[in-house]
């Protein structure tokens, strides 16, 4: 009897939820805003689906309807990836420890 690959993916999914649960509880509350912006950036990994959708298919007609949706999704995800990581970087750079007054 063979196990459906879906079950493997479901296992990954469930285990990741638990990993996420414990990892996120350990995030310090003062970094909750960067947490939101970085989760936003990484959820844009949906771009991999968009790339496949955009590039797959025949080479003659680049703009089949399904390709167009792929390209649009690439555009949206790219805004998020760059925007999300950079704004997180910008925020994190501001968190400083106490220093001697200048």
């Amino acid at each position: 009897m063979e196990i459906d690959p879906f079950i493997f993916r479901l296992s990954i999914f469930i285990l990741s939820i638990f990993v996420g649960y414990y990892v996120v509880w350990s995030v310090t509350p003062s970094l909750h805003t960067p947490l939101m912006s970085v989760t936003n950036a990484i959820s844009s990994v949906i771009i991999v689906g968009a790339i496949i959708a955009a590039l797959a298919g025949n080479n003659i007609n680049v703009f089949e309807t399904s390709n167009i949706f792929g390209f649009l999704a690439i555009l949206l995800a790219a805004v998020n990836i760059f925007g999300g990581f950079l704004v997180t970087q910008r925020m994190l750079a501001m968190y400083k420890k106490k220093k001697k007054e200048k």
């Binding site: 990954i12 999914f13 990993v19 996420g20 936003n40 990484i42 959820s43 990994v45």
Partner: peptide, 8 residues
């Protein structure tokens, strides 16, 4: 995507 989706 599955891992990230679950994390987020």
């Amino acid at each position: 995507l599955i891992i990230t989706g679950a994390l987020v």
